[in-house]
Amino acid sequence: MNILIIGGTGFIGQRLVRRLHQEGQKIFLLVRPKSIEKAKRLFADLSDITFLRGDIENTDLLADVGQTGKVSDQIDCLIHLAAVYQLDISPSEAYIQNVVGTQNVLKFITRLKNLRYFHYFSTYAVNQVLSGQVKESDLIPESSHFFDEYARSKNQAEHLVRELTPKSIYTIIHRPGIVVGDSVTGERDKDDGPYYFFNFIQKIKSLGKISEKLKVLPLPVESNSLMPVIPVNTLIEWSTQIILTPVERPITCYHLVPKQEIKTKDFLQLSIDLLNSPLKIVGISVSGMFPPIFKLLRLPEQLVFYMKSRARLDRSQLEADYPELTGPDYKEYLPNLIKAFLAK
């Protein structure tokens, strides 16, 4: 396949590029003009990658696609995973990058004459406020309440993808859960998600004597809160398989999370244990108090949502199409993550 990847230099993107290249696919990378040198250095070890200049912020995404001749005719698969990801991102930044950016990609799609597959990377957080069973076909209205601008903008963007993609193209929406480091090497990009929590525990430990007296850690986790964590390498394997053996339906959406449900409390408790802290988590449900407390502890207040989320991500579409994708047991890889975290 001739695959054009938008957002191939990011944390997930880089790995996906390498993995697809390894599978012998012809890769085209759309890179911002100013970062093109950096990208070339990044993939210097890979042969036969075509770099295209373009910025999804711009109306005319591939203003200089002319220089690459008939490239736009060759593409039969497009992967769009460019997005800004930060919980404390500003609304306008999130909107311009994630919403307008996706809108521009959708416009660009109409110029790819031979495009058959469009893979769009969304996030499980598009249905942030839902609890209970969340189906892969669910998408809450864009006017719903969101805890952070990232989730809001990704929700708006997925709405656009679902509504504006030409029906002749097979659209596949990848909705990963919380992406954590490599399950083997523990390698990661930045400290967010559970890593905030790891840092937090470390901070308590660094307080010395006071921390030894602390026996319990009250957190807004309820016994049935769930944490849909997926290691980045698992995600890459799964997405690669989906990209190489795509299902041909107008719109398909997958929740890319392990089959085994992970209870937030268990996951965090195991993390604490692995970090050699004697703390025991006590779940409390006074959620209104937490944002100010989180602020005090220099944790992003949006994290509250991720702790108390009780959404159960339905993966029946994934199981129907790719029954072999079940995912690793967090108890097995969490030590590796912690090891890498501590090594830093």
């Binding site: 609304p91 909107y95 864009e142 656009l160």
Partner: peptide, 27 residues
Amino acid sequence: SSRENFDQVVEMNGEQFHVRGLGANYD
């Protein structure tokens, strides 16, 4: 709402224009 965002080429008086709709979500 941004839900109605669009991207369209419209024609008026024989000339084409690229019109993009961006909704500010009441912000």
